[in-house]
Design a binder for these strands. Structure first.
Lengths: 220, 220
DNA sequence: ATTTTTTTTTAGGTGCGACTAAATTATATT
DNA sequence: AATATAATTTAGTCGCACCTAAAAAAAAAT
């Protein structure tokens, strides 16, 4: 079978997240994503290529194979199911679960995953708004975009977040910008790309960095 | 703090299980228990001694320190809580959980453990009848012994098992010897130490090996 | 079209946790 | 007490996943 080490799984996950159709994924980008060094990445890419999980040609950037995609999705499925469990069942806060799920996602047992999924009622979204792949790796299509991409004078509902760090999520909590909240984007500041919005009749300003990491669905 | 590797945790657990007051624990015994080689054990014992988790003197056998005991109990607590979770919440069978709990016991998060404990209702025993240490490492005293230790013509209730392998537990299941069942020990065979017992009016014979791995409480 | 900068790869090294084979110490036997 | 056996330790390797420093290739700038 395909028995991967924790490291290998983390590389596949990183590659999955960095993948964009048509583009090869650079060694540097992967190193940044995994907080490691490019030299270490090159080595691992060779190993993953040997296992037919990606196509590797020197200096060309890497592209995951179907098998690589599938295995990455298994890890992502586990991560998101565990996050859902931690929040919904164990009552952890959405900013407390990422690190723990990073560990739990590597537990190996198909039976465990399927029973967990059933126990949770086959959830479709995790606590950060990310879709949970099903057993076959399918997940609901997402029709959302960053706050930094919507036009002034439009209404939006917060759907999810792109950054899962505790620091960012605690910040959002403080601003009352949590999943499900709706707001109106009033204005985008030209020189720093910061955004002015109205939430519960209160006007507030959020930085470009924050705006880039909040996912919303547009409301008519 | 005391951040241990998975290997180190497994050594501590093995040492905890092999510990008997007064006796030092041998390198060979640990190697057998962990399915590894004595040479590997010696190395690890030195490392654990450096961390003050046990006292090590060449050729003398090893004794865990208070700190070593405490950390072993934390791992055992996690193992047994997860086993309880897997059986009671995810509906896995008692012979399916050991291997999975061997992985889950190494997940690092105090918050997770305490919330899991609360979610499960602070259980006192795991699915194999083993006591679950509480937050302070205390667990209920056990007043039980092996079937191989009780006298003919006594009644007993099955309390737990000493062997947690799937093979053994499936065997017990087939014999209908599960936790809570009561039986009468009729006779012990002298030459092979096998045991004759009556369960639900049915007479059955179990081997010495099986008898040694079933824990019972004596009934008057 | 060169040169400079950036990206990627190679070469060589480290720590961890395992291994084998050989040496040493402890224990048991005669 | 001497010897045989068993347990333990040492010495030397290995694979994995990381690292640094230097070389090579690709991309960008002049």
């Amino acid at each position: 079978m395909s028995n991967l080490s924790i490291s290998e799984e983390n590389y596949l996950k990183a590659i999955f997240h960095l993948y964009k159709p048509g583009e090869g994924i650079g060694t540097n980008a992967i190193a940044r994503h995994l907080d490691t060094k490019p030299a270490s990445v090159t080595e691992m890419l060779k190993k993953l290529a040997d296992k037919k999980l990606l196509t590797y040609e020197k200096y060309q950037g890497v592209i995951p194979t179907r098998k690589g995609f599938t295995l990455a999705l298994v890890v992502i499925r586990k991560h998101r199911l565990w996050e859902y469990f931690l929040v919904e069942k164990l009552k952890l806060k959405w900013d407390e679960v990422h690190e723990i799920a990073e560990q739990l996602e590597h537990i190996q047992s198909d039976l465990l995953v399927e029973q967990l999924d059933a126990f949770l009622g086959f959830p479709k979204l995790d606590p950060h708004g990310d879709p949970i792949p099903d057993k076959e790796g399918k997940m609901c299509a997402m029709n959302c975009c960053c706050v930094s991409e919507i036009k002034p004078n439009s209404n939006a509902r917060i759907f999810g977040v792109k950054n899962h760090t505790s620091a960012f999520l605690k910040h959002l909590e403080k601003l009352n910008l949590t999943i499900g909240k709706t707001f109106t984007l009033v204005n985008r500041n030209d020189f720093d790309q910061s955004v002015e919005l109205v939430l519960n009749k209160q006007t507030m300003h959020i930085s470009k960095e924050v705006a880039e990491n909040i996912l919303v669905e547009k409301l008519k």
